[in-house]
Design a protein around this nucleic acid. Sequence first.
DNA 1: GCCAACGTTGGC
DNA 2: GCCAACGTTGGC
Length: 154
Amino acid sequence: MATTRYWLLKSEPGAYSIEDLKKDKTTFWDGVRNYQARNMLRDDIKKGDRVFFYHSNAKPPAIVGVARVVRDGYPDHTQFEQGHPKFDPKTSPDNPRWYMVDIAFEKEFAEPLPIDQLRDIPELEGMELLRKGSRLSVQPVTKKEWDTIMKHAR
DNA sequence: GCCAACGTTGGC
DNA sequence: GCCAACGTTGGC
């Protein structure tokens, strides 16, 4: 059994929010079209791993809850669907390029942890999310960062 | 709405 | 294989 790892997944709440996940209980994390993020989805993110759910492009942007990975990476079916906004003509089921995982809702924070509040926590200095220009929608989180954030969450 | 910080594409 | 042009992300 591999050690549990920690991740942060970004979503624009207008597209898919923590409330949606709460309602759905589980979802597939489709639509990632970035190679670095793809590699993590395909190779590194495993069943049982823990996930921070982050609302990007929100007012304010914030970590809003926690989820758990319930299925290892597998091909994102939306890449094959002609007409789908994320359709990729250069892929085929024989040769998939994009991957996704399934996650399950665990909890929604009583209060979101906004990004400027995270910036005020000294232990989180250097966290990927807080780096200037950080755009990755799938990010690794260290155990220390995880524990620190959980300590501040309510 | 602005724009910095990327990532991707394609001509050469 | 370089790199300019273009597109996207996402905080502000």
